[in-house]
């Protein structure tokens, strides 16, 4: 390593020196820690809301700042730019960034053992398996085009045989029959479809070869080296909060109506549905966030189908072991 010190390095050193000077007076003060979420506030992030409300992060000595996401927020950008210490994202973007652009990321855990993304259709015009998509129109958010490519590739379907159009997160075209299916969270949109008087039908991509995690917990190698203790604390508090939230998925969302879910434009019934539906995708006997060797292997294999080269060393399970 060169003996130069960058501007950020200098500021950090200065801040550390400053902190060291004031340490005796505020020894018990919490360490600021920022997490970047992948989307706007909804039940997908219930565990973190619970952890903050119940003081589980504070109990671990973390002063957690929570940043909601959005369509233009690329979660990885927040950790590259130093705006967040940790982000929730998808394994395909992270691993592509590591293998193709040399990004220094590590995946240290995963919220979803199975990706909730699936193909959602209407019961009266059901899409039961990837093969049914041939000759049909499916709406896909442009950012998820990699995911649908993986599904088609792993099931031996030529991309040209499926009509892929943009999805703007509104299920109306599906309900009105303008499209045959959409790629969306199976834990979420079926609720709305039911509200609109139709019955939804869906399958998980995970059950058709796209064996990927979702909301993987990603950090930069630099953060891993300098804030290891805080990361373990975050994992420990988050696991505790998630377990508590999933114990009764209908309990907490109504309590956040005027706090975390205020003004989101979504209904509390929708959040309860979401929280309940995601339980089997998050729960694991090894403890929430854990990554088994077998599953890591499955992720690498699924990504290989779309030409993304992942390796075992992109995943770091040692922090989970320290919880």
């Amino acid at each position: 390593m060169a003996l130069t010190i960058g501007r950020r390095g200098f500021l950090q050193t200065a801040a550390l020196a400053g902190a060291a000077l004031t340490l005796p007076r505020m020894a018990r003060a919490a360490t600021p820690f920022t997490m970047q979420a992948a989307w706007i506030n909804d039940a997908e992030f219930s565990g973190y809301f619970l952890g903050m409300d119940k003081g589980y992060y504070a109990g671990e000595g973390l002063e957690l700042t929570y940043l909601p996401g959005g369509p233009d927020v690329i979660p990885e950008s927040s950790i590259i730019a130093g705006r967040a210490d940790l982000t929730l994202t998808t394994p395909d973007t992270t691993i592509r960034a590591i293998s193709e652009q040399g990004a220094k990321f590590k995946i240290i855990g995963t919220q979803y053992q199975k990706n909730p993304i699936g193909v959602v259709s209407l019961k009266k015009n059901p899409i039961n398996a990837p093969a049914d998509l041939v000759g049909k129109t499916i709406a896909v958010p442009p950012v998820n085009i990699v995911t649908i490519e993986a599904l088609l590739a792993l099931n031996g379907i030529d991309k040209a045989q499926v009509n892929i159009v943009p999805y703007a997160y509104d299920p109306t075209p599906l309900v009105k029959g303008e499209i045959d299916a959409s790629l969306d969270f199976t834990t979420n949109v079926p609720f709305t479809i039911g509200q609109l008087g139709e019955e939804a039908h869906s399958f998980l991509l995970y059950d058709h070869g796209v064996t990927l995690y979702n909301d993987t917990v990603v950090v930069t190698e630099e953060t891993l080296a300098t804030k290891r203790k805080e990361l373990v604390s975050w994992l420990r508090a988050s696991r505790k909060a998630w377990a508590e939230n999933l114990a009764d998925p209908a309990l907490y969302p109504p309590q956040w109506e005027s706090t975390w879910f205020a003004g989101t434009g979504r209904s509390i019934e929708n959040e309860v549905f979401f929280n309940t539906a995601q339980k089997p995708l998050i729960d694991t006997p090894d403890g929430i966030f854990s990554m088994s060797e077998e599953d890591i292997e499955k992720n690498i294999k699924a990504l290989a189908a779309v030409g993304i080269t992942g390796t075992r060393d992109m995943f770091d399970t040692t922090l989970l072991a320290e919880i």
Binding site: P171, I193, T264, G265, R266
Partner: peptide, 25 residues
């Protein structure tokens, strides 16, 4: 709409899209 955050008509719009409720939009 794109930038993340909790308040603003754009954020409200994003959250409301999934409802399939044109009257809200």
């Amino acid at each position: 709409f794109g930038g993340g955050g909790r308040w603003g008509l754009g954020t409200y719009l994003l959250g409301s899209l999934g409802r399939g409720d044109p009257a809200r939009l």
